[in-house]
Design a protein around this nucleic acid. Sequence first.
DNA 1: GCCGTTTTCGGCCCGACTGTTTTCAGTCG
Length: 575
Amino acid sequence: MRNKEVAQKFYELAGLSELAEENPFKVRAYLEVAQQIENLPVPVEVLAENEKLTSIKGVGKASANKILQYLNTGRIDKLEELKEKIPLSLLELKKVPELGARRAKILFDTLGIESVESLKKAAIQGKIRNLPGFGEKIEKKILEGLKDIRSRQMERISIGIALPLAESIVEELKESSSIEKIEICGSIRRMKRTIRDIDILVVSGNPVPVMDKFVSLDLVKNVIVRGEKKSSILSRENVQVDLRVIQRESFGAAIQYFTGSKEHNIKIRELANKRNLKVNEYGVFDLETNKCITSETEESIYESIGLPWIPPEMREDRGEVEIAIEGRLPELVKLSDIKGDIHLHSLYSDGINSIEEMARQAVQLGYNYIVITDHARALGVANGLSIERYKGEREEIERLNRKFAPFKIFLGTELNILSDGSVDFSPEELALFDICLAGIHSGMNQEKEKITNRIIKAMSYKGVKVITHPMGGLIGRRDNYALDLDSVFREAKNRNIAIEINASPQRLDLDDINARRAKDMYSLNFEVGTDAHSIEAMKDMRYGVGVARRAWLTKDDVINTFSSAKFEEFIGGKR
DNA sequence: GCCGTTTTCGGCCCGACTGTTTTCAGTCG
């Protein structure tokens, strides 16, 4: 799968073309190609082989040829030409606040600056303030921005950090009597697994005190911009928070605008234009009379351009607008569809709550069943269980099942996929369990072929029904394994094994793009599990469901939406 | 460079904020 690298080349084409001051629409066209390929649910090289490249939205003849050239030779003539004129490193400069293509080009042309280091030097020497389009203030902002650039670039944070942070900001702001309504928008509302900034929308007829309160919140490190309608701050954790204040009558248009994604909004606005309408954050307007058609609800915004309401998780310009036009939007799986959490760790291994406490929490969450999947023997650091100890666990579960009926607890295990692909127990021993999950917990740095074959071998053990956290990364902390996911998906399909969407905010693994691919290409079953080690963490299910919705999964795709009976059937009808 | 239920040419989302300007360009989302 070479989608990422091909997309990267088109980002470079876009960036350098912009610096070379080519037609801005050409730049946008390259960007569109990059994004479409990045989000493509199938390998671009497969489309290339079948001469289907131009079936990708935004890919015409010229781009198709560039893709082919890259796939065949590893280079693109056009890109090489651009690189001769403009160093690739200039694209780094654009990451500095206040620097876009225009100013980056001026820096290069006048002072020969082509790296962050030489930029810093020039700024300290006061050489930048006198350039056209610059000034003292911008020079100062650049220097300050350079200080933050490391932490700010710490890239994206998990939604598991961003959403609670956003919720706490909302709680604090709510104290203001000027606020009629407040909503978290942006990529958090779209449930993206990683977040760059927090967007909050406020309805108020009196914006000034709202802005006052916002910029003086405890968590504010510095104020980036401060206006009547819009302000931005940088939090102590180096997360940017944007606040937009609008009037009540614009709410629907504003939440649509502020939820994004940018690419989705562009699609929507283009569609509106074709109908002689204009969409902005204040409403939908007739282009001729400039009269507002509608603005109050998000549904009405979509309706006015002939579309059904599109769930925020789908708004990425990954084909959702096209199928919405055709009236073929899927009914996405919902949190309330989840009937059980089937990846849980109790006190028996490294959890901090008893099975009974977890069962109570599950009942509280509205589930009909859970599977306790404590770590198995080989994971010593997590107090992995021997078969004998699992037998003790089985006894306790049976006792609890009499107490909690009709709610049901199943005995599972999270097996370790060992370095040769075997698991902790013999086939006879595995028969003890109602269901086995299996995941890699060691030897994560093995080479691609080896690690892929390990998982494939583990799937051959009878009783293994789920592969946990298949990609193996930890958000912001550890890379994914080198893994041939397609081989894993193919084998999972053959053996009717479900692939996990791990809902723990540290993981969120599979991610949405791969999950969608697994559904589109292999029609796999999925399991959304919290991997909770506490009753608190059982609430993380919302993040996993978010990923599932972003992958366009429906209720039927997710095995833990099944009724108890159907779930038992899936795991083999035992007990 | 892409695209077409008005178009194979002439369009291509839209607005807020800031700083450098003296009416607007650049950046950002």
